[in-house]
Design a binder for these strands. Structure first.
Lengths: 327, 327
DNA sequence: GTGAAAGCGCTAACAC
DNA sequence: GTGTTAGCGCTTTCAC
């Protein structure tokens, strides 16, 4: 397995200087087209591909974007990762993925570790206190996803209108007593979504039972089923789809059937919302746009500009878990 | 935003030479402990973290592992990614994630692009013909996941005993006519799983209806529901959990209820298998071990050894989608 | 045990 | 348009 080709080996075989080879790739317009073609051709023959780490050392730009997520296994993230990766590819950048495994203490260390290897960071850190997050991100260009902070450019999804639209739908179906399963106390999205439902309920004079903040895991949803039944609500807003799946599972164990006995609404429209039977009524997050906007904002940031926070709307998806309130 | 600390800035403030600082980090035992501690301390003060790209340039080792998956959104991959990332972290390596988006034509290009930035590759490419794959991976240390090839070290999950155990269970429950939803024709796992079921069925003298290879997407499972009903089978083995969810959805639309009318078995035990109601009977893939084994094999490879293919067993998970055959 | 110097592959002034 | 040179941050002989 022979040594990989470099601009030097190409330079030698073509009979030009290394800088010309370099330019042929990074500033094609600066080298005469006939020469450039010869260079590119032999580069291909030699199986050359530029060493971006070396380029990064020289330019200060690595061409890699770091993406930090709290938990790859949470179904919210794969579509987001996909979207970011797509957008990054369009900008000729690679994706370094970091999973902090829900440990905010690890985040600082992780960020420090990768700092020199990335141009910037796209970070989803729902729980870390703003102040800490700000410290963690000190000195590294970063855009934060699904969370709004004054000090950092962000990309968020506004689910308020969609949630309220679904709420209206529930109202039409006769639901007058609704349970709300709050997400994690410290999570921006949880607060935001809860407020949307609360505001609506107050305006509509609907009874809203707020169940205490939960970790947003399937098991938490399952565990909440008891309380939902006890609350005597006929419909429930879960913080996200995963919790919604959890309540459904828990309710089913208690002999309740969906949507006949209770209506359930999730949020995000992740894969399992679509694959469960019946499929879940939820709010669809614009993953592709979120990803693209994140990368765009980061690009802006790297260019020295100051991107504003981007807000993208969720879309209501009326599906099988919502039905008329039981008489 | 001041320039990041380097071994030089540390060297200056401590009053030693850059090489000593370098050694303090990469060969701690070579520098007197008192000095080393001073160096480490001021490094911390200055917020230093080593530039691994530079280190990579010097050593030829980047400290990053590339992971290529066909589709991050397929629920099989997030747990695998998580596991690989964990194992990589233990070895002090980062993860560069590449999603080929099911396009095998793109794979060559993607691999070439990242080749210089990674030490090696962990690749899940279920469909690319072996010969092509071998070419694509030419000259880059790689281990392949969930696929067995003579020319490449691999890590695979053997689901045969688990599937047959579940099949036995079905047999006890009275199932004598079983449908098999094959996965993608070119996929190693699909062939392997199909054989497991087929062999069992022949031995048990059970009627097996093999439905033509499908893409392993939810929609394909849904579309297969018709054929399942037409086949008059009382139980179905789906290629994977996603397809299983699909058939369930399709069957439910046709008025069939699970497991009363039909029993369904998936494979892999991805998140949605656990979150659906009823939860899916399936074979649990040892994600953590698969990830660790992949990284271990790659490490071996990088050390110049020739790792054998690792085979890890799946575990049967009897859950809610299997019941007695209808009389 | 520590320092000096060369080099990893590339880019970017600066010359020509 | 193209070549020369220095330097990005680090490791690694080779001296001392």
């Amino acid at each position: 397995m022979m040594r990989r080709a470099t601009i030097y080996s190409i330079a030698t075989t073509v009979g030009v200087s290394p800088s010309t080879v370099s330019r042929a790739f990074s500033r094609p317009e600066m080298v005469k087209s006939e020469l450039r073609e010869r260079i590119v051709a032999t580069a291909r023959d030699l199986g050359y591909s530029p060493n971006r780490a070396a380029r990064g050392l020289a330019t200060g730009r690595t061409g890699v974007i770091g993406m930090l997520v709290p938990d790859v296994e949470n179904p919210f993230f794969p579509p987001l990762i996909r979207a970011v990766q797509d957008a990054a590819r369009d900008k000729d950048a690679e994706l370094l993925l970091i999973d902090s495994e829900l440990s905010s203490t690890a985040e600082q260390e992780l960020v420090d570790r990768i700092r020199p290897q990335v141009d910037g960071l796209i970070i989803a850190s729902p729980r870390l206190p703003s102040k800490r997050l700000h410290e963690v991100l000190d000195g590294i260009p970063a855009v934060i996803v699904n969370r709004s902070m004054r000090s950092l450019p962000g990309v968020v999804c506004d689910n308020t209108p969609a949630l309220q639209e679904i709420a209206d739908h529930l109202h039409h179906l006769g639901h007058r007593r609704i349970a709300l399963l709050r997400g994690p106390r410290a999570a921006w999205a949880a607060t935001h979504r809860a407020k949307a439902v609360r505001t609506w309920a107050e305006a509509k004079d609907v009874e809203l039972i707020e169940l205490r903040p939960f970790e947003a895991q399937f098991a938490d949803g399952r565990a909440a089923a008891q309380q939902v039944v006890a609350s005597d609500a006929s419909a429930v807003f879960a913080f996200d789809d995963l919790m919604a799946a959890g309540v459904i599972s828990g309710l089913s164990e208690l002999g309740k059937s969906i949507p006949d006995d209770l209506s359930i609404v999730g949020c995000d429209d992740v894969l399992l919302a679509q694959t469960m039977t019946p499929s879940l009524t939820t709010v669809s997050a614009p993953f592709t746009e979120l990803g693209r906007a994140s990368v765009d904002s980061l690009t802006e940031l790297l260019a020295g500009n100051t991107p504003r926070t981007v807000t993208l709307p969720g879309t209501p998806m009326l599906r099988g878990t919502v039905g008329p309130a039981r008489a």
